[in-house]
Design a protein around this nucleic acid. Structure first.
Lengths: 211, 211
DNA sequence: GTTTGTGAAGGATTTCACAGCA
DNA sequence: TGCTGTGAAATCCTTCACAAAC
């Protein structure tokens, strides 16, 4: 089942919330709950029922009046909309401490994300094994990305090399980048970036802590 | 220098962007640049100059017409506004694989965040050393948080225990939580939570990848 | 009776555009 | 002249409220 939705007609914020819905639905499904209302979903996610219904309405009509949503069905539909019903291969660049932690993070595989190649600029690391993969030279990046039709790059290099590595990923043809480096990356408009940045997260909370 | 700003009068989105400004300013400062315009800042951050000026205007008037902003001064002022001019101690709960990676992440200390105590519910881990700290029992959480006046908790336990651990942190008096567990946490309104969730980040990007 | 889906209203955020200052 | 600071306008996002469906 291939959903046909014009990405431009859906607000970005809405797309960002969909994975959350999928997650909560999976949670309810595994608890044996078959039907759920926007009210109940909202309680779990600390958001208003209206927002959930409006968000879903961008993609179709999934509920039944007077009843709610079929948990299993809605989860499947949303997964399909997000493209989570197929596997996504990714390359990772930077196999230092952080990179190795990311490679061995067990949360990706069950969700359909697999790191299939790892790279490092450091000659001394090339050829070593990381997570049962051979560390490759950066010069091989473009070929690997093209041959294996890889759309996702994960950046775990030190800040000072991050922008250059991101440029290389973009040149190689990657369209989505998960950036662990503490820099605000610059990319062309057809490439998506999401940052993973615990320090930024802490730094915005201290504003409210300081009294 | 203690900034007096009413947190409620500043939009959340604006507060979330301030750390980004601080980071870019530090970058320019260490490159020896002393004055910068909102135009240049915007180019680096891929945002409009107007937005940067408007954001800053919530906190004061930092620039000089015809010239721009003094890089060093603005950085200091923003750090003070965010409360980044003092050190923040934090507790971490969950010293499994992920927890240990977070404890040894070298990005916190230079920014003034220090993990000063670690906890785990698993009896077998209690007493062991992690990052030169003794792993403590969860029953000691409240006392440690109170005695050391800790406001920040970091959650690195498996999803199924995360909400309960968050409840314990809230009861202990923590006011900001950095949550690495893949669950949408429920907290009272006076407690802030920020999630670190690479899987969610990937899952929203695939929407735009799938064609 | 209950809950969805959705126009319309309301609120929040971003961008515009320009007066005012260096 | 060049760039900030900021009201006003425009845009975007959330919430309301209710007809329609079960």
């Amino acid at each position: 089942m291939q959903e046909i939705i014009n990405a431009d007609s859906v607000p970005d914020v809405v797309v960002q919330r969909l994975p959350l819905y999928v997650r909560v639905l999976s949670h309810f499904a595994s608890a044996g709950i078959e039907v759920i209302s926007s009210e109940q979903l909202g309680a779990h996610l600390q958001m208003t029922p209206a927002q959930i219904r409006k968000d879903l309405s961008y993609f179709g009509r999934f509920g039944k009046q007077g009843r709610g949503y079929d948990v299993g069905n809605l989860a499947v539909r949303l997964r399909s909309i997000l493209g989570l019903d197929s596997q996504w291969n990714a390359v990772l660049i930077g196999v230092g401490r952080l990179g190795r932690a990311v490679v061995s993070y067990p949360g990706f595989e069950p969700e359909g994300f697999r790191i299939v190649a790892v790279f490092d600029a450091d000659e001394r690391l090339v050829g070593h094994e990381v997570g049962s993969m051979r560390v490759q030279k950066l010069t091989e990046l473009e070929q690997t990305v093209t041959e294996r039709d890889i759309k996702i790059g994960i950046v775990t290099v030190p800040a000072m090399y991050a922008q250059e590595v991101i440029n290389q990923l973009v040149r190689a043809g990657v369209k989505a980048i998960l950036n662990y480096a503490p820099i605000p990356p610059v990319v062309p408009p057809d490439v998506r970036v999401q940052g993973v940045d615990p320090v930024l997260a802490l730094q915005s909370m201290t504003f409210y802590l300081k009294n």
